[in-house]
Design a protein around this nucleic acid. Sequence first.
DNA 1: GAAAATGTTGCAGGTATTTGCATAAGATGT
DNA 2: ACATCTTATGCAAATACCTGCAACATTTTC
Lengths: 253, 253
Amino acid sequence: MLKRERQAYIIQQINVHNKVLSASLSSDINVSEDTIRRDLQELSDTGKLIKVHGGALSHSFDKIKYNSVKDTGRVYAQQQKKLIASKAISLFKDGMFILTGGGTTIIEMARMLPAGLSATFISGSIPAIVEYMHHPAIEVIVIGDKLSKNSKITLGADALTRIKNLKPDFCILGINAIDLEHGITDSDWDVVQLKQTMIASSQKVVCLTISEKINTLQPIHVCGIDKIDILITELAPDHPTMLPYVAAGVKVL
Amino acid sequence: MLKRERQAYIIQQINVHNKVLSASLSSDINVSEDTIRRDLQELSDTGKLIKVHGGALSHSFDKIKYNSVKDTGRVYAQQQKKLIASKAISLFKDGMFILTGGGTTIIEMARMLPAGLSATFISGSIPAIVEYMHHPAIEVIVIGDKLSKNSKITLGADALTRIKNLKPDFCILGINAIDLEHGITDSDWDVVQLKQTMIASSQKVVCLTISEKINTLQPIHVCGIDKIDILITELAPDHPTMLPYVAAGVKVL
DNA sequence: GAAAATGTTGCAGGTATTTGCATAAGATGT
DNA sequence: ACATCTTATGCAAATACCTGCAACATTTTC
C-alpha cells in the first residue's frame, strides 16, 4: 500500500467516524504505529485533521467541542444521518444503477460510500455529484437542466424526460414529511414533480428521513405509502413509531 | 513496445485499478523501472495521473491534494489566470447566455464574476457549476451526461445534442494548445468532440489560455484559428508573441 | 543516401524517502 | 505515585529517485 493511499484511507475513516485510533489504524493497514503517527503528523500539519494523544479527530468534531450547546442538537442530527446513511449503503451492490435526489441525508450517504463499491449513481443534485465525483470507483451520470439555487438540484421538463428514460435499481429519496394517511408530502411544486418522476421510473423506492419528520405533513402530495418499498430512519424497525409503517407493508430498516 | 503504447497501458491500468506500482509495471512490460518512472513523470506533467513515491494514483483517488497544496510555484500562474479572468469578465453584459467549459482558468473566472452581473451560464463542468451556484444573481443551466472523473465535466452524445440546441452569445473555452498553423488542438478525444460542438453552436468563440500554451501542439485537432473570435492571455495585445495572431484576424485582449 | 540532430532506453552512481525498531521522555488513569 | 500506554528522536536497512552518460533507434537536413 502506497503512502498516499494510506493517508487517503485515514482521511476517509476520519470523515466517516470523526475519529481514529493509532492502534486500530496500525492493525487495519498492517504497518507500525510509528508510520501511522508520522502520517497523522503530516495530515495534521496540512490541516486535514487534528492530532490528539492516541489518534486523531476530524475538524468538524473539534468544532463541536468549542461551539455552544445550541449546536449540539445539530450534531446529534448529524449522527442520526450517519446511521441512516450506513443503513442505506448496506443495500448497494456492485454494478447497480442508483438514482438519488438531494438533501443533507443523501450527501452524508454519498460521503460514506465504501471505496470498493463500483456502482453507477445518477443525480441532479450538485452537492451529491461532487461527493460521487471524489469516489474512486463510482460512475456518475449527471441529470442536466436549470439549476435551482435553493435546493441545488436541477429542475425542469428536461430533467423529467431524462429520468423517464431510466430504469434504475433503486431510487433514493430524502423526504421532508411522511404520514400514514397521506404518504409522502412536500412543499415545492417542482421538487414534487421530480420526486414523482423518480419514483415512477425506479424498480425500488427507498426513502431516507430522520424520525422527527415521521408523521408530519406538507402541502403538496408526492405519493402514497404503497409506493414506498423501503423506509430508513435512525430508529430500529421495532420502535413504536415505526410499527404502523411496518403494518402498512413498508419494509423498515 | 512503443512508448505511446506503454503509456496508454499505464493509463488503462490507472483507470481500472486507480493505482499502479512502478515495480509491477516494470515487470509487466519488461522495461526498466527508470523508464516507467519517466513515463509516470510525463503523464503526471500532463495531468493524466498523480505520481507518488513508489508508483502513481488516479486523479479521482487523490482528493487529498485539493484542500492543502498551496503550491508556491503555481502562485504565479494563479496571478496570470486572474488577469485573464478579469479580461474575460469585461465581455459580459446582463442578460447574456454564456456557454463555458471546464479547466482551471474558467473556474478562476467563475469565482471572480461581479456580484451584480445577472446572466445565464451554461456548463457541464462540475467545479464551474459549483462556483456559478454560489453567485447571487446568475442563472445556471447544467449540461447533463456521464461525468468524466479526470476532467470533471460531463461528456457524451447527450451533452452534445443538448448543446446543439443552444445559441449562446458566447462560448468560453479554456484551451490546452494553440498555434497559428493548426489552430486549437487537444489530447482527449471526447473533450475535442465537446469543444467542437460548443464552438459550432456559439455566436462568438472566446478562448482563454496562459501564454505558455501559445504555439504548442497536441495530437487532436479541434478547430482552425479562423473560428476564434477573441483570444485572451495574460499578455498585452501588442506583445510580440501575440502579434501574429492579431495579423491572422483574431481579436486579442 | 550520408550526416547530423533528436528521441529513447538502460545503467551506474549518489541522494532522498520511507519504514520499523530501540530508547528515552511524556501523558494518562487509577 | 505507580503502571501502562503513547510519543519523539535517532538510527539503520531497504527502497525509490534523480542525474549524467553511453548505446541505439528514429527523424530531419542537406
